[in-house]
Design a binder for these strands. Structure first.
Length: 494
RNA sequence: GCGGGUGUAGCUUAGUGGUAAAGCUCUGGCCUUCCAAGCCAGUGACGAGGGUUCAAUUCCCUUCACCCGCUCCA
């Protein structure tokens, strides 16, 4: 319900999405709920088209890739093995002065003995100590976890358990004004069983990928897969993001399209490169302007510990370059983790070398909602010359492929148009509209991104031809009405 | 999570301590022979909760949502 913000970059698109039934705010009649969005009649068609194109291009059109659909709730040990529990269960502290957020153990810890003047600080993993007490630590000023010094024995006066934590300070600005440590686990928790107390805690999956890894053995066996081969999956994932926003770009519930492509480790660099190129081209084929797309290779320091290489595909949104998809060479990390945690043998038998090997994996992890936002943003066009707003969607992704219109509502034109519409909608998403002037009806479809319009006019009554209007050029050609299905099918196949 | 901004109809705006106006859109009808024409009629809003008050959309508090910036982002 935000208003008066027409100077904001996304506002016009948000407005159009609501006006035309692409995207609504979730639970709007109750005031909405943060970062949750619902897809309306046009939105769901567009989203479904995106997923279908991905599924076709990545899964069904390829001989060595299969699909799957794993459950959202999985065994809690999956997330321990994957590192999701450990990585995110650290409590974080906010500095009230400089707003820096940090892990509790990164704070500057000041310790003091309660029975003598002995004191020291631990800052960034190092002990800082007054000269007079330096001898107690020898020459080695390495510090362990600050936790281990709490209630330790005093090296100065020798009293037992008298070293106490005196205070914490911000590691950045030194301020002692800090929030209490708080949990920021990004996984959504829920419970199996009717009563919370007695039930096991489970998580909503924060990514779909683990569903693939834990089924690795099942799929290798049943699909008789031979390296290199891939497993693709589309599904919802949930992350308790601290910061959401930019419309549907970052939300807590979102949909992923993930491919795990298993390869012999020595071939991983080759396949990594292959998938980076393949995926980059995919967005171009969806009609996204190529100068608004770029690849960004992660620097060494930026890489997660398990990834050998990682490249993001980014789009230039009105709010800046942002990630659409990550392609990573994860090596054998994921399978290794599950082998360790489950004790099961997740390997592949290579009949060439007669060896059991754990394959490396190239991951392509794309966001459905982000792809949709990209397509909508990229297609949005204000055609000032003709005073209209157009979504220049390629026919393949457009929610409605063709609109059928009688030029005027008499002389039998509505009946003929209706018959053409009935014919067309057996083959493609079509729409019929007889309300208002012809110009108004064209404009409505321009905003919906409908690429083609068929209009029945007086000449149709004479020679059976109709006009076929092109959304972007506004050009019209005449075709026999009985050829409408055929002509459109050809155009849609482009 | 922090700071700032915003919240009246689908959109853009008006207005008031006595429950709200307009244009566009939308719906129906008339008219209309190709790009938001015209005429008639109609639907439709003060984000939510609480407080002050005889009376709150208006004043106060809280909350919710959106936007911008920071922070975060396996």
């Amino acid at each position: 319900m935000a208003r008066k913000q027409n100077n904001k970059p996304m506002d016009k698109l948000v407005s159009l999405c609501k006006r035309r039934g692409f995207i609504f705010q979730s639970s709007e009649i109750y005031g909405g709920i943060t970062s949750c969005w619902d897809y309306g009649p046009l939105g769901v068609e567009l989203k479904r088209n995106i997923k279908n194109i991905w599924w076709h291009d990545i899964v069904t059109s390829r001989a060595n890739i299969v699909g799957m659909d794993s459950s959202i709730l999985m065994h809690p040990k999956v997330w321990e093995a994957s590192g999701h529990v450990e990585c995110f269960h650290d409590p974080l502290i906010d500095c009230k002065n400089c707003k820096y957020r940090f892990r509790e153990d990164k704070a500057v810890h000041s310790f003091k003995c309660s029975s003598c003047p002995f004191n020291f600080k631990i800052n960034n993993g190092k002990i800082e100590v007054n000269n007079e007490f330096e001898k107690h630590f020898g020459g080695d000023l390495f510090a362990g976890e600050p936790e281990t010094y709490k209630n330790s024995d005093c090296p100065n006066c020798g009293e037992v358990g008298t070293v106490k934590l005196e205070r914490l300070n911000c590691p950045k600005c030194g301020s002692p004004e800090l929030s209490p440590p708080r949990q920021f686990n990004l996984m959504f928790k829920t419970h199996f069983g009717a009563s919370e107390e007695s039930a096991a805690e489970v998580y909503l999956r924060p990514e779909t990928a683990q569903g693939i890894f834990v089924n690795f053995d099942n799929i290798v066996t049943t699909a008789r897969a031979k390296l290199p081969f891939g497993i693709g999956q589309i599904g919802k994932a949930f992350r308790n993001e601290i910061v959401t926003g930019n419309f549907i770009f970052r939300s807590r519930e979102f949909e992923q399209m993930e491919l795990e492509f298993f390869v012999k480790s020595e071939e991983s660099a080759k396949w990594y490169k292959y998938w980076v190129n393949e995926r980059f081209d995919w967005y171009k084929r969806l009609g996204v302007r190529s100068d608004y797309l770029r690849l960004r290779q992660h620097e060494k320091e930026e890489l997660a510990h398990y990834a050998k290489s990682c490249t993001d595909i980014e789009y230039r949104f009105p709010f800046g370059w942002s990630e659409l998809e990550g392609i990573a060479d994860r090596q054998t990390f994921d399978l290794d983790q599950h082998i360790k945690a489950s004790g099961k043998k997740l390997s592949y038998f290579d009949s060439m070398s007669n060896n059991h090997i754990v394959p490396g994996v190239i991951e392509s992890s794309a966001g459905v909602d982000r792809t949709m936002l990209t397509i909508l943003t990229d297609a949005y066009w204000e055609d000032d010359e003709h005073d209209r707003v157009v979504l220049r969607l390629i026919p393949k992704v457009a929610p409605i492929k063709v609109v059928v219109l009688p030029l005027v509502n008499r002389d039998g034109m509505p009946e003929i148009a209706r018959a053409i519409f009935d014919d067309l909608r057996k083959h493609m998403a079509a729409f019929y509209d007889q309300g208002g002037s012809i110009g108004r009806r064209y404009r409505r479809q321009d905003e919906a991104g409908t690429p083609f319009g068929i209009t029945v006019d007086s000449q149709t009554l004479e020679d059976g031809t109709v006009t076929l209007r092109d959304r972007d050029s506004l050009e019209q050609i005449r075709i026999p009405k009985d050829n409408a299905v055929k002509v459109l099918q050809e155009k849609l196949a482009l």
